[in-house]
Design a protein around this nucleic acid. Structure first.
Lengths: 245, 245
DNA sequence: CGGTCCGTTGAGAGTGATCAACGTTAGTGG
DNA sequence: CCACTAACGTTGATCACTCTCAACGGACCG
């Protein structure tokens, strides 16, 4: 199976030599069992990860024993970038399903910058995209009701699932527990349950353990607190590197 | 006056040739009046900014007319990076005080990647640091009480002010209105007011229009929902680029 | 087949929002 | 320099969204 390059090629076109360099990353993918930790907060920072299959949650813990899920990662995502700036990992990465991922060592990552500047730009833009997504999520949690937050998350998720063909006619596997949804959106699992039921009763979604079905996309969109940002694709890379390149 | 290089040199040591390249950025700084917008959401993305003096807020707006302040920027910060991935700016940058900043064009930024890989690594790590900060803030807004959020913000701010010597004995200028504080922390201005008064009455802080005084640092720390992350400094750059470099 | 985790539902409590009014400060123009 | 005005800070009363606590049923796993 072809590794999901789409996120790496989103912002810059890659030459075959660049693709070769990347190809090494996928030499020996690692399989992780459902619910197993990939990396814990405080672990040494050995590099980043490229997720090829499955769902991963990244989270930070607070003193009170609470925790915040920062992001749900899907195939094609790069994991662990923020921790590069820290002495020890600042986020826990946990497999939400059977997961397959590749480790990219610090040295390999550094070589991208010294040898493949175009690829480095692509990586940088990719992490800026993540930052935009994080800003959006902060705005949901800081300034939207439970119904709005849930709608926004489901819509965002559906978009990202579509990019890797993990959604069909609005239906998709959904391995998150309501507890985890709550930790993701700053709500309790009890309130997630009630809010989910409201979406259900209105006919916007249908759900069973393990999967979700968006029955009324436009209805959900009418609830969302913002319109999703418009990512620039290759144009972003060209702005930085010049059109003659 | 020496531009605040500290953030650029935080993760990698710079050679004199690299410093020269950067030096061009500071050729003609632009002055912005208090309360003036630097860039609005939807504006074209012409590059990024390097803040040399003053306070800047970056914010996103939601459909309901609400808005979320994403970050308060201080001298030394790079502004506008996330929007590089977008077709149009995704965040509004607004001067909270008299501001002085330098514009760095897309092309100049691209040249950093093609000509000065070490500097590019420094920039990348710097934006990862911002991402960590954003993750922290999300956790405050998503999982902490109003008192905890306020304490966490004030402590974080004090640390960052200290890095640019804008704080003296715990006292500093503070140009944010309570309305803006509310938009930053996901609370209403009324509730900010009451929460601030609680901090005041407990003797943790003293405040007047325009400035703030941290009277009991340890007390504030006891309220904070998390311990601040430990950034790796030059060690982070060395991990990627190798110690022999 | 039993245990544990997860989803569901109810009752009650509380944090923070909303609405409203007023005093104070700072900025503006005469 | 003063009067005027708008923005900001403060406080009270009330509302409601979400949390907490609790119990129970169902699904999955060993």
């Amino acid at each position: 199976m072809q590794p999901p390059f789409h996120r790496l090629e989103e912002f810059v076109g890659l030459t075959s030599s660049e693709k070769d360099s990347i190809g090494q990353w996928f030499a020996n993918p690692k399989r992780i069992k459902k619910h197993a930790p990939i990396r814990r907060e405080g672990d040494p920072v050995t590099g980043v990860f490229f997720l090829t299959q499955g769902w991963v949650a990244s989270s930070v813990v607070l003193r009170a024993g609470r925790r915040q899920l920062v992001k749900i990662h899907l195939p094609g995502d790069m994991l662990g970038f923020p921790s590069l700036a820290l002495t020890a990992a600042g986020e826990t990465l946990e497999a939400l399903s059977e997961v397959s991922l590749c480790h990219i060592s610090n040295a390999s990552l550094g070589q991208i910058f010294t040898r493949h500047p175009r690829l480095a730009v692509g990586l940088m833009l990719s992490t800026q995209k993540e930052r935009v997504a994080l800003m959006q999520k902060l705005s949901w949690v800081g300034a939207a009701s439970s119904l709005e937050r849930l709608a926004a998350f489901i819509l965002d998720l559906a978009d990202r699932l579509a990019a890797v063909e993990m959604i069909e006619e609005g239906r998709f596997d959904f391995p998150l527990t309501q507890q985890q949804l709550g930790e993701l959106l700053g709500l309790t699992s009890v309130h997630i349950n009630r809010t989910l039921r409201r979406l259900d009763e209105t006919g916007f979604v249908d759900r069973q353990r393990g999967w979700l079905w968006i029955k009324d996309l436009e209805g959900l969109k009418s609830l969302a607190p913002n319109v999703p940002p418009d990512f620039a694709g290759k144009e972003a890379g060209l702005r930085l590197l010049g059109h003659g390149n």
